[in-house]
Design a protein around this nucleic acid. Structure first.
Lengths: 234, 234
DNA sequence: TGCAGACGAGAGCACCGCTCTCGCTAGAGA
DNA sequence: TCTCTAGCGAGAGCGGTGCTCTCGTCTGCA
């Protein structure tokens, strides 16, 4: 093996990329339910059976698209988390950027945060890119806790710690008092973010609000109050 | 027209019910993506084409199931909203009952609160049953505001009213000070509830929490803090 | 009691995911 | 430089899908 990758491997990777790109275009236009391997193959001018050399099943292709979507959302969030901003403003910027991405890529959002398409699956490849948004959130909250700008909860949560060691490790150990329960609390930020975007995108807020963007900001701010983050509205 | 409904109509309604029930069983077992008109017809011992006399398309059948699911969720919530409880305890009971229903009926939940299955649709039949959960939430919050047990927000939300007249009418007019913005705030309760259940059900909380039920309570409580509701944990 | 209209069945169309087998050719290894 | 193998694309085919159309039948309304 003289080369890092042989010509065959390079050709294969390129074709994999073209297939994924074509499928991604179909996904963006018509949604995951309408994504058909045969249609992708047709557009590429090859037999549908040949696609199976590259993706063993339709679900495998869909999984690749899911990973890409997670990465795109994570990247958007990371770019929006401007360290020059205060924690509250930073989180609001992240929320807005994620919502903006979702409005532009509704089908990709549905693929990632909607119902699991086939039975279940969600293979191991998807868990790592899925944590990028969580990491951004944790960085914002823990940063605010560290420099003392995070509000202290009126009273601590009862009961034992609820996050697993995986989460603790990601956070760099358990937070110090008075922020003992900040990890448990702050997951509501993610839930509210994902929930609000899905709520709007899937039509559940139909004709309830006069200004969806303004309401989204409010929802994020109200959710953040319980965590001690102060989101600058208006 | 002597009878309220003729024998033909009665037979038709009965068969419609059987079809929907059979389809519902398939949905509960295998999910919406796997629901096939042909399989339903096969199980009922009739030709697939005959089903089209009763439901003009697969989507129409799915819509009927969506309406049923909305109604079931609404009914669960209404039953859980025990007026003997304080507002916070009442809302916690509603949240828990909705989560419990979703855990028992994951595919139905995904059908209702997951990604819109085909393109979009969500016909007019679905909007009325969809509001039942919202009405329960509004009753809890407005009741607490009326008897003064609802916490007053640290500072009012900036900007004009964000809910439409439809929501105002449902709430029986705009709330009185100091609860002017309670409607805008309280929708975060719905978003957090739906978001948290979906988050757990769709696998996004994978290996993050040691106790999913306890974490759910915490998430609801933290979200409710921003609205002024005090959820009794522990 | 006559008959229109509702009904069920069947064949068929176009599409789907996926498998298998077949020749071919280009690239890897000697 | 030569050989040969492994990867490749194509095609046919299987079982399944949603949906349409047509054709007898037969029921229950008037």
């Amino acid at each position: 093996m003289t080369a890092v990758q042989t010509a065959r491997q390079r050709a294969r990777r390129e074709l994999e990329h073209v297939i994924k790109a074509t499928a991604g275009r179909h996904l963006a236009e018509s949604g995951a339910a309408a994504l058909s391997l045969r249609a992708v193959a047709r557009e590429m001018g090859m037999a549908s059976s040949a696609l199976y050399r590259y993706y063993p099943s339709r679900d495998a292709l869909l999984t690749a698209l899911i990973v890409d979507a997670y990465d795109a959302i994570g990247e958007t969030a990371e770019e929006a988390a401007d360290p020059a901003l205060a924690a509250g403003a930073r989180w609001l910027a992240v929320c807005r950027s994620v919502r903006g991405w979702a409005l532009v890529h509704p089908h990709e959002w549905a693929l990632v945060y909607g119902s699991p398409v086939p039975g279940y699956a969600a293979p191991a490849d998807t868990v790592e890119p899925a944590t990028r948004l969580s990491r951004v959130m944790a960085a914002v909250v823990l940063g605010a806790a560290e420099d003392g700008t995070l509000g202290v909860p009126a009273r601590p949560l009862p009961g034992p710690r609820l996050v697993t060691d995986v989460v603790l490790e990601m956070a760099g150990g358990p937070p110090a008092p008075p922020y003992d329960d900040v990890l448990e609390r702050s997951v509501v930020l993610l839930v509210a973010l994902v929930g609000a975007v899905s709520y709007e995108l899937f039509g559940h807020s139909y004709s309830a609000f006069t200004d969806d963007a303004a309401w989204f900001d409010v929802a994020m701010a109200v959710a953040a109050e319980g965590v001690g983050l102060d989101l600058p509205l208006g």
